[in-house]
Design a protein around this nucleic acid. Structure first.
Lengths: 110, 110
DNA sequence: ACTGGTAGATAGTAGCACTAAGTACCGGAG
DNA sequence: CTCCGGTACTTAGTGCTACTATCTACCAGT
């Protein structure tokens, strides 16, 4: 059975990660941990890595590889100008959706 | 380039349609028209029909076929008890997501 | 030597919205 | 009478996204 949250995250998870990166640069493992701390306990690690590669290919983030004291080198992602534009667009779309859903929920379907 | 809204609708469009049906029974064409009137101008007709068939197969709605004065017979969908449960669950999930996104947006990522 | 925590990559799967094309029915314009 | 436009529904195929599962790699402590 498909999970409701799984489907709802499609499209929004990307914005969530970009928003996190807009605060400060971060690497994958850190982002996953931050998400979990933030209540999104069920998001798989692999999902985040795949997403990061995707937004990197789209040129929304810059990457800086630096050695870690523990384990393999980290890939530190930071939001660039294009990413910021995309993030703004994301929030505009989200606001539209959230507004209309609220409206629909409160009987305002007429 | 993938549309932001398209991806964001995944998972939520289903809830939107169920919410519309919770007010009163409706048929596909009508639902499409209502969505368009509600600001969702870019939702394709085919999408709604596919979605309706899906939720019918899952047993979330009951179907009543009745002749139309214009064109082929309408398939009138109405929300049943299982659908209502699912809708409640949908709103709970949505609220969680909306809350956490708001929190994240207002610098509350720490 | 082994376990556990840190860090990332990837092949395969399922679900969803979209595109595009079609069927079917009817009324009115030409 | 034929054609067009509006109503109403169907369906095959596509692309994108999150998930599962598994793998590599590095290091510290026992």
């Amino acid at each position: 059975m498909a999970n409701l949250m799984t489907e709802m995250l499609k499209g929004t998870l990307e914005g969530i990660v970009l928003q996190i990166l807009s605060g400060q640069p971060a690497y994958g493992y850190e982002i996953t941990a931050r998400l979990r701390a933030n209540g999104f306990t069920d998001i798989a690690e692999g999902t985040i890595y795949a997403l990061l590669i995707r937004i990197e290919k789209r040129g929304l983030v810059d990457v800086d590889k630096r050695p870690s004291e523990k384990g393999p080198p980290r890939k530190v992602y930071s939001l660039n100008a294009l990413g910021q534009d995309y993030l703004n667009e994301f929030w505009r779309t989200w606001s539209f959706l959230a507004e209309h859903l609220d409206q629909l929920r409160n009987g305002g379907s007429r």
